[in-house]
Structures are given as C-alpha cells and as structure tokens.
C-alpha cells in the first residue's frame, strides 16, 4: 500500500525543516555567503549611486542563485551520505512525491535567504527593494532555480566530481529564469510603467511551469537504482 502523495511531500518537508531548525547549518551558511557576496560586489564594482541602481538587480540575482547552489548541494548530499535516498526508494512512496518534498524544502530555504537579503540590500544600496512586485519576482525566480536545481543536484551528488559539477550544469539551464527575473527586477527598480515589463513575470511563470513539469517527469529516472 502506498502512502498518500501529499503525506509524503509533507513528511519530507517537515524532516528537512526540523533538521534545519535544530542544526541551522544550511540557511546560516547560505546567508553568510549571500552577505559576503553583496559586500564583495559593492567593493569590486566600486559603485557610484547611478551605477548601483543599474547593477543592483544583477547583484541580487547572482547572489541568490549562488547561495541556492550552496544550499542545494548540502541538502542533496545529506540525503546521499546518510543513505536516505536508498531508504526512500525502498519505501512504498511515489518518487515524484520525493521530488516535490525536496523541492519544497530547498525552495523554502532559498526564499528565506532572498527575503532576508532584500531589506539588507535595501539599506546597503539605498534602493526601494521592498515592493510587492519584487517579492512576487523573488518568489517565482527562486521557485524556478529550486526546481531545476533539485533535479540536477540529485544527479550531481551521485557523480564523481560532486559539488563542483552542480553550478556548471545548473547555470546554463537556469538562464531563462535568470534572464526574466533580472529584467523584471530592473524594470521595477526603475519604476517603469507596468505595461512595459508585465510580460517578464508572465514569461517567468511560464518557464517555472515548464520546468516543474519537465523535472517532475524526469526525476524518477534520476534516483532509480
């Protein structure tokens, strides 16, 4: 008898959140990295006020995606090292439920980091980052990264080169998400009229949906043994 789909998803998410609340390993290292990255960018680019406003959405998204890579590697490596993946394969559960469980956990971590990063960057770069639309873009963007990231990380943690391979395979595939997210956030920060950029969130949502379906279908091939 199979455990119901949503029960499995919830159980995996709860396990990930509980482990994180107790150890605080993942989010704290992601956050520390994000903070450093934002500071390094502001020194490296030697930004004046105008250049900062142009570059800020790029800095935000590059930071969020690299922090996600960090989190994804840890999250899936933990499953492999403890032998959890094999255990989940033995359990009478749907593999797609395992995918959505891991995806939801990774998404929550990445979104948390993004949400904490926004007020911080708003102060450091003196930009109006706390807007409803930007929160929506952050939500959709991190969802897109986490979706293909969860699938690809499940693959790369099983390879010889492990951690170093994930950014190499993830970044090109995540490009459509990155492009739409950066363009939308730049337009929002410039306070451009809604009609000029409203296609970007639409494209972003469409790309998210395509990746979600594609990764959901492909995931069962990645963890079989």
């Amino acid at each position: 008898m199979k455990t119901p789909f949503f029960q499995v998803v919830l159980a995996i998410v709860r396990k990930d959140l509980q482990a994180e609340l107790r150890s605080r390993e993942l989010v704290s290292s992601m956050l520390m990295f994000a903070l450093l990255s934002v500071l390094v960018f502001s020194f490296a680019l030697e930004l004046d006020r105008l250049a900062r406003q142009e570059a800020i959405s790029g800095v935000l998204w590059v930071t969020v995606i690299f922090a996600s890579v960090l989190g994804l590697n840890r999250s899936l490596a933990a499953e492999r090292d403890a032998g959890n993946l094999d255990a989940m394969l033995l359990a009478p559960v749907e593999r797609a439920a395992v995918f959505f469980g891991k995806l939801l956990g990774n998404f929550i971590f990445a979104l948390t980091v993004g949400l904490l990063l926004l007020p911080l960057m708003a102060v450091l770069y003196n930009a109006p980052l706390l807007q409803g639309w930007l929160l929506l873009i952050l939500f959709l963007g991190t969802l897109g990264f986490s979706t293909c990231g969860t699938l690809l990380a499940a693959m790369t943690v099983q390879t010889r080169t492990r951690e170093s391979l994930l950014p190499i395979v993830l970044l090109p595939v995540a490009l459509p998400v990155l492009l739409a997210a950066v363009n939308a956030s730049t337009a929002i920060l410039r306070a451009a009229p809604l009609n000029d950029w409203v296609t970007w969130p639409q494209i972003l949502a469409a790309v998210d949906l395509i990746y979600m379906v594609l990764c959901y279908l492909l995931f069962s091939f990645v963890i079989e043994e």
Binding site: L151, L152, M155, P172, V173, L175, P176, C215, L218, V222
Partner: peptide, 13 residues
Amino acid sequence: RFASVYGILAITT
C-alpha cells in the same frame, strides 16, 4: 540515464 535527462533539459537553452 543522467546524460539522457540532461540532454532533454538542455534543449531549453
């Protein structure tokens, strides 16, 4: 298996 999965995903680029 992995190459097949990635080859399918890569067509998006």
